Amino acid sequence: MNAALDPRGRPVIRGCVEQATLGEISGWAFEPGAPRHRVLVELRLDGGILAVAPADHARGDLVPAGIGDGAHGFRFALQPAWAARLPDLQVVARAAAGGAVLLPPQRRVEPPHSQVVQVINQLVQGQQALEARLQAVVPVRMAPDAEQRLAVLEAWMARLDDRLARLPAAPPAAPRGPDAWQVALGTLLALVSLGALIGFALLLAL
């Protein structure tokens, strides 16, 4: 199967070097024109090939990104002599139908300086707003002599309560006699009762 070619005649291979340390070099490589093909990756130094490995390591993060079936990772363990010249090492990917592509290091997009300054300013403004809210919530501090005045007031109230407790109790109110209405009503009831008794006595006499 022929490899897909870019306008300049080189094979189209997607990939990059993600990690380059003194111990290893790793990354991924994928050929969209031959998705089932495992790209051969070469580790080179000064034009010579140090090692060759297929990009066939399973990578779970590649599938969601649309990189084939995900099995397109590679890794080279570096010998001490290779690690000593780490900046001079190159990683080249070979296409199924021939041709090679130099795999670039992974690019990290850094925010422009103006955006960094804007983010810092927003953080500072947010912190200032938070401090203002906290100061509004904290109660106002009392005057230096406020606690002493409060203690004197409490002592005065305690003495007042003690004096009120020592006052003699009020004498009980004298019993009140019946008023005029109660006397008239009682007299009327007595007369009615007397009249009823006299009438009942007359009935018995007859």
Results as ranks from 00 to 15, higher is better:
136 A>F: 04
168 P>H: 05
125 Q>F: 05
119 V>F: 06
111 P>I: 01
204 L>A: 02
107 R>Y: 02
203 L>I: 08
111 P>C: 00
100 A>M: 04
102 L>M: 08
106 Q>H: 02
94 R>Q: 07
157 M>D: 14
169 A>G: 02
100 A>D: 08
183 V>I: 10
166 R>S: 03
167 L>V: 09
182 Q>C: 01
96 A>V: 06
186 G>T: 15
103 L>H: 07
125 Q>E: 00
181 W>R: 15
137 V>M: 14
119 V>K: 15
143 A>T: 00
125 Q>D: 03
187 T>E: 14
98 G>M: 08
156 W>H: 04
121 N>K: 13
102 L>P: 11
117 V>H: 04
105 P>M: 11
134 L>P: 03
201 A>H: 02
151 A>Y: 08
129 A>D: 11
154 E>Y: 14
201 A>K: 02
193 S>H: 00
162 D>K: 04
145 D>H: 14
110 E>P: 07
172 P>F: 06
194 L>D: 08
129 A>V: 10
167 L>F: 00
122 Q>L: 10
141 R>M: 00
148 Q>E: 12
124 V>T: 08
167 L>Q: 07
104 P>Y: 02
128 Q>F: 09
146 A>S: 03
199 G>W: 14
204 L>S: 07
199 G>H: 12
193 S>L: 04
108 R>A: 06
161 D>S: 02
178 P>Y: 03
180 A>K: 15
101 V>Y: 01
92 V>C: 02
133 R>W: 00
124 V>M: 05
109 V>Y: 08
139 P>Q: 13
205 A>M: 01
181 W>T: 15
100 A>H: 08
186 G>D: 15
98 G>E: 13
203 L>A: 10
194 L>P: 08
105 P>D: 09
102 L>I: 06
136 A>H: 10
98 G>T: 10
152 V>T: 02
135 Q>M: 07
128 Q>K: 09
117 V>F: 09
171 P>V: 01
168 P>K: 09
181 W>F: 13
103 L>M: 07
128 Q>V: 00
111 P>L: 04
132 A>Q: 14
102 L>Y: 07
108 R>V: 04
103 L>D: 05
183 V>G: 05
194 L>G: 13
113 H>Q: 06
188 L>E: 03
177 G>L: 11
92 V>Q: 01
138 V>S: 12
170 A>P: 12
158 A>G: 03
126 G>A: 14
189 L>R: 15
184 A>G: 06
112 P>T: 04
97 A>M: 06
185 L>E: 10
188 L>A: 14
93 A>Y: 04
102 L>A: 05
204 L>Y: 04
129 A>K: 11
118 Q>D: 04
205 A>R: 06
116 V>M: 12
149 R>D: 01
111 P>S: 05
98 G>R: 12
185 L>Q: 12
108 R>P: 01
152 V>F: 11
149 R>T: 01
198 I>H: 11
165 A>L: 06
131 E>L: 11
183 V>K: 06
195 G>C: 14
122 Q>M: 09
179 D>H: 15
170 A>H: 01
95 A>V: 00
179 D>R: 14
118 Q>P: 00
176 R>L: 12
111 P>R: 10
128 Q>T: 04
